[in-house]
Write a protein that binds this DNA or RNA. Structure first.
Length: 515
RNA sequence: GAGCCGCUAGCUCAGAUGGUAGAGCAUCUGCCUUUUAAGCAGGUGGCCCCGGGUUCGAGUCCCGGGCGGCUCACCA
């Protein structure tokens, strides 16, 4: 068969009006070659295996919605014509008649192929079809003996010949690596996977509606940035040839969005990719989707209210109720959510002496006692955050706003009026994970410049993730930014929670893999 | 980056102690015009992830490598 196909392929290539066929024959499965032979035979019989003139008139689920309630007798009386297209996901062959399952984007519908209806030629064409082929069918609706709504097919078109066999019909595709690398198969045969990405789409769409209905406008800011700012993270570096300049894939859009607020776009949001050159895990992908939004004349406290409203509405939207299960634990999104300061969280969970909050040496001593490895040059606030993350953070499984972060871990946040060693900031923790990060924005350009300088010192002291000086951003602030609050929400992690997905790779269509 | 686990037919998986590579689904042939993982009978199909080593003999044991998963570290 191999030689035969090779010969035929080269003949096709030499032929003038014959469609070019170039099938790599080596290292193919027997089934691939069988299907390729069918493909060749179809072409030789004058059948175009890849036509593009077929227009389905409806979808599988639309048919079920429209006629699923009708009885056998009502359907027979009506003889309602339908025309759908989709992939053959099952064939149950009886010789001169067959049942097939046709799957389109909306769902599946059974079709009944009978020689009597299709005729010799039509049925011969059907016999050249395999599982995984895409077909268009027309016919009338009826119910089988087992009462399944089914199309009695009177016309069949092959719309796309599939050359590879599909994964197993019962177990689907379970090999994790294959699922990620060939996500199209995963979506094709594993309905629950498709469901996750439909929900992801619904979530993003709802967020857009939620914000735009509150007079936010959606914007897009640079992915390629000369100074990677807005977060503490290692960036990807790249190079623009024509400009002869180094650029960075953005780690956050923050500083650009705030420039827009300065310009008068008082409510802006962006849902887009961030890139961070760091480790990969069940909660980290090198590129991930972030929602960031900024609202002038608001504070971080206003955003807590807004976040509560947005996320609980999303939970309702996806689950229909406020108590959901995530990986076996129950999460209750009923507002209001607990609000607790970082220091109080440490007091509650770390059993720490009070002096650690005012005395860096005491804080270092305490962190050493906890067995936390602390880099020598770390600032007081960072040591406290280390203590918080190691003792308290993972304890917050229910939605919790943790507020009032140390100044030196928040170089872009506004100082707290009562305690200028803290900033007006919160993180939203759910299931022990950071889902959102927000603060009242620092809009004092003098203070901002000093903070950047402080970051430069930390950089010099060896913290490669410390923020860089962004003169252009400071200049923008010097024009005056209205008092503003801003927030970032990790969309992937939010989708994980709402779809009960254990890994971020389950909610990213094409997660980063080696090779 | 470290530790643990995995990689066998297109897919899902078996292959104690080293001794001629197996099943189910898919595919092929035959039968079957209302099935639901349709059924019955018979067949085809393998660089056992790659490379070394031990051994008369390696899918199996040892060493190195690749890819993936989980945990940890870094981070969101």
């Amino acid at each position: 068969m191999r030689e035969f196909l090779q010969k035929k392929s080269s003949q096709y290539l030499r032929g003038k009006n014959i469609e070019r066929v170039s099938i790599i024959v080596e290292n193919r499965s027997a089934e691939f070659l069988t299907r390729a032979t069918k493909l060749k035979e179809l072409k030789e019989a004058g059948v175009n295996p890849y036509p593009n003139d077929f227009k389905p008139e409806t979808t599988a689920s639309e048919v079920v919605r429209g006629f699923g309630a009708l009885t056998k007798e009502e359907l027979e009386a009506k003889r309602h014509p339908v025309c759908i297209a989709g992939r053959i996901m099952a064939i149950r062959d009886f010789g001169k008649a067959s049942f097939i399952q046709i799957q389109d984007m909306s769902g599946r519908l059974q079709a009944y192929i009978k020689k009597d209806f299709l005729g010799e030629d039509g049925y011969a064409l059907f016999k050249k079809c395999d599982m995984g082929d895409i077909v268009g069918v027309g016919g009338t609706l009826f119910r089988t003996r087992t009462n399944e709504l089914t199309i009695e097919v009177t016309a069949l078109r092959l719309l796309s010949k599939g050359l590879h066999p599909l994964p197993e019909k019962w177990h689907g595709l379970t090999d994790v690596e294959a699922r990620y690398r060939q996500r199209y198969l995963d979506i094709m045969v594993n309905p629950e996977v498709k469901e996750v990405f439909l929900k992801r789409s619904m979530i993003v769409q709802y967020i857009r509606e939620f914000l735009t209905s509150r007079d936010y406008i959606e914007v897009e800011t640079p992915m390629l940035q000369p100074i990677p700012g807005g977060a503490a993270a290692k960036p990807f570096k790249t190079y623009h040839n024509a400009l002869s300049m180094e650029l960075y894939m953005r780690i956050a859009p923050e500083l650009y969005l705030k420039r827009l607020v300065i310009g008068g776009l008082e409510r802006v949001f962006e849902i887009n990719r961030n890139f961070r050159n760091e480790g990969i895990s069940t909660q980290h992908n090198p590129e991930f989707t972030m929602l960031e939004f900024y609202q002038a004349y608001a504070t971080f406290e206003d955003l807590m209210d807004l976040t509560e409203e947005l996320v609980s509405a999303l939970v309702i939207k996806i689950h229909g109720r406020l108590k959901i299960s995530y990986q076996g634990q129950e999460l209750d999104f009923t507002p209001p959510w607990t609000r607790i300061s970082v220091y109080d969280a440490i007091r509650k969970y770390a059993n720490a002496p009070e002096e650690i909050f005012t005395n860096k040496a005491k804080a270092l001593e305490f962190s050493k006692k906890l067995g936390i490895e602390v880099a020598p040059g770390l600032s007081h606030g960072k040591v406290l955050i280390e203590i918080f993350e190691n003792t308290a953070e993972h304890r917050f499984s229910q939605p919790t706003f943790v507020t009032l972060y140390p100044l030196d871990v928040s170089p872009l946040s506004r100082k707290n009026e009562k305690d200028p060693s803290l900033v007006d900031r919160f993180e939203l923790l759910i299931a022990g994970r950071e889902i959102a990060n927000a603060f009242s924005e620092l809009n004092d350009p003098v203070d901002q410049r000093e903070r950047f300088e402080g970051q430069l010192n930390e950089r010099a002291a060896g913290d490669i993730e410390a923020h860089e000086m962004d003169e252009d951003y400071v200049r923008a602030l010097e024009y005056g930014m209205p008092p503003t609050a801003g927030e970032g929400i990790g969309i992937d992690r939010l989708v994980m929670l709402l779809t009960d997905s254990p890994s971020i790779r389950d909610v990213i269509l094409f997660p980063q893999l080696k090779k």
